[in-house]
Design a protein around this nucleic acid. Structure first.
Length: 562
RNA sequence: UGGGCCGUCGCCAAGCGGUAAGGCACUGGGUUUUGAUCCCAGCAUGCGUAGGUUCGAAUCCUGCCGGCCCAGCCA
């Protein structure tokens, strides 16, 4: 078992360096960060990186991190997403003291907008969206001022009140910041800060028909909460001048510092809420928590541990460089964690029957198995053994190469924790498939060693046929066949048809619990498994979380290639 | 060809003017009743590139090359 009590300080990165400097210069009394998801989808691994960064910094610098819902777009946001986000952050092991929503600040935001108008720094534009777009210019051409740009403060104030008081329909007017239509930074070309949208908001209901935009809302929400460091991804770098502009022009409690870092990209996976949503909507996956999904809920259901995801987030680092992490890094973090905590059991997922002809028909006995090969704290268990057992189809080969250390006619192998058996004969069905394998066992070899000390190279796992539990096992693989599916406009052709393989006749050692356990299993020689959340005693379902490293597979591949 | 940002081993990533950490992957070897785990060893005369400054440059300066982001009343 592992202890998680040791306080681990995360490795340094450029953001932590900035914060450390700020602290040594006494810029802040204490550090406050925030994780600000929009509740318009489920959280994914990319969010995990941000969560670990923001909450991790708060923990290490003895500050706090707010979980704030950035909910200014009522048409996309739902309570379901709010619930899932809270659950995911908690599951990852982080705690928030405050869990505000940007929508909690709508009154204050409205008042800030009014202040901007009064300072002559915002105006109501009555151009339609198309005109606004064409007047914005292009990357290389300056924009043109709106014909409504010079309305009087009084007129703007009245129009804005009327917008709020439901006098207009969607799109008829918009409030814009008056900055500079010829700015080389397009975000500064009089950005819209309030738009009219007659929609019911999950939090404020029908109180508002105007909603503030992200750029206006985010910096002010940060200031209201006294955020010291506002960490976001690279694409917001161009927005920082705007972030600072609002805070400079308005009288706010403080001026947080926005710092941008590169978002996580993982090979062979999608981290876009829009596209993940598409996978769900088109039933390409079962749900947001389908074990193939890179969502936190999907990974949790698959059997990932929170600790492995946190370790991963830490090991990949935080920089401003666009990068794509190989899956192997995530897998390594998972295996490393699961190896320490998984309880060992035996299960056969592609069974073939073995009959031990010299073992008495009516006899059965118990053999003792370690629950963890290295950690004695896991204890041992008794495993029933009898004349008929199941072994893995892959562990038998009729014409086996010399290096195949498993069952083959004339060869002797060890049944893990039980006896040495020697393959005598193969009985086939009419179609040539193997019906059963006949073996003999050495009664002297109980426990897996013989008095004469002879070497048996191979050890295979097994399950007593009459004592086995039958279960369905799901083997997962990457959802996409190409390493960068995010680049594709249409990802359908890149879907991996074998991302889910279901094996319905798996045989489990009887001591395996078939309802979801807090502790993961390692099915020896096969991988890490966990009961699915839908598994029951009547219909047991196991997800393979991750395979074990398999150096035999490599050898086999090389032989086939030569 | 406007603006912003980034380029250190296959993939990440330290390094902050004194002579290239670490992880993953890979390769070789050892232990092993999981071909797992574990252990040991190897893996950048070079930091996009060309110049310059300096006794000394991945680190400072200049040019060039390559990549990413921005023209939602989305976030």
């Amino acid at each position: 078992m592992t202890t998680e009590s040791e306080e681990k300080i995360s490795p340094p990165n450029f953001i932590r360096d900035i914060i450390s400097n700020d602290i040594s210069e006494n810029k802040h009394d204490n550090i406050i960060t925030r994780f600000p998801p929009e509740p318009n989808g489920y959280l994914h691994v990319g969010h995990a990186k941000s969560i670990c960064l923001n909450f991790g910094i708060a923990e290490d610098f003895k500050g706090v991190c707010n979980l704030r819902f950035d909910d200014t777009n009522p048409e996309k946001e739902e309570q379901e997403y709010i619930d899932s986000i809270r659950q995911d952050v908690e599951w990852l092991g982080f705690h928030w003291e405050t869990n505000p929503s940007a929508s909690d600040y709508f009154d204050q935001l409205y008042s800030y907008a009014t202040q901007l108008i009064k300072k002559g720094l915002a105006y109501v534009d009555s151009q339609n969206a198309d005109d606004m777009r064409s007047n914005r210019g292009s990357l290389t051409e300056a924009g043109k001022n709106s014909p409504f740009r010079d309305r009087s403060i009084e007129e703007n104030l009245q129009l804005f009140v009327d917008m709020k008081n439901d006098k207009y329909s969607d799109g008829e007017h918009a409030l814009r910041a008056k900055i500079d239509m010829s700015s080389p930074n397009i975000n500064m070309r009089d950005p819209v800060i309030y738009r009219i949208r007659h929609a019911t908001h999950h939090n404020t209901g029908n109180k508002w028909c105007i909603y503030p935009m992200y750029d206006f809302t985010h910096c002010l929400s940060d200031a209201i909460e006294g955020i010291t460091h506002s960490l976001c991804t690279l694409e917001f770098e161009d927005h920082r001048p705007l972030y600072d502009w609002f805070l400079d022009k308005l009288e706010t409690p403080c001026h947080p510092q926005q710092i941008e870092f590169a978002r996580l990209q993982l090979k062979y996976t999608l981290t876009s809420k829009r596209k993940l949503n598409q996978l769900v909507q088109e039933n390409i996956v079962d749900a947001w928590d389908d074990p193939r999904m890179p969502t936190i809920s999907g990974m949790r259901r698959r059997g990932y541990t929170a600790q492995s995801i946190r370790a991963f987030s830490e090991i990949i680092g935080v920089t401003k460089k666009d990068s794509t992490i190989e899956m192997g890094v995530l897998e390594n973090c998972l295996r490393e964690d699961l190896n320490k905590r998984a309880i060992r059991r035996m299960a056969v997922i592609n069974p073939v029957k073995v009959i031990i002809e010299n073992y008495p028909e009516d006899q059965e006995e118990m053999v003792t198995g370690k629950n963890h090969p290295q950690d004695p704290q896991f204890g041992t268990r008794e495993i029933p053994f009898s004349r008929e057992i199941y072994v893995e189809q892959d562990d038998f080969m009729e014409d086996a190469p010399r290096k195949f250390f498993r069952l083959s006619p004339g060869r002797e192998v060890r049944l893990r924790f039980a006896y040495y058996v020697t393959c005598k004969e193969v009985i086939k069905n009419d179609d040539g498939s193997i019906r059963e394998i006949i073996c003999t066992y050495d009664p002297e070899s109980k426990g897996g060693k013989s008095p004469d000390g002879r070497k048996v190279k191979g050890t295979i796992h097994w399950v007593s046929a009459k004592h086995a539990t039958t279960a369905s096992v799901r083997i997962y693989d990457r959802l996409f066949n190409i390493s960068n599916p995010a680049k594709l406009d249409d990802f359908h052709n890149a879907l991996n048809p074998d991302s889910l393989i279901t094996l319905d006749n798996a045989k489990l050692e009887p001591s395996i619990e078939t309802v979801r356990q807090p502790l993961a299993y390692q099915f020896e020689r096969l991988g890490y498994f966990i009961a699915d959340t839908h598994s029951t005693n009547e219909t047991p379902i196991f997800n393979r979380t991750m395979s074990l490293r398999d150096s035999w597979a490599k050898i086999e591949k090389e032989q086939n290639n030569s």
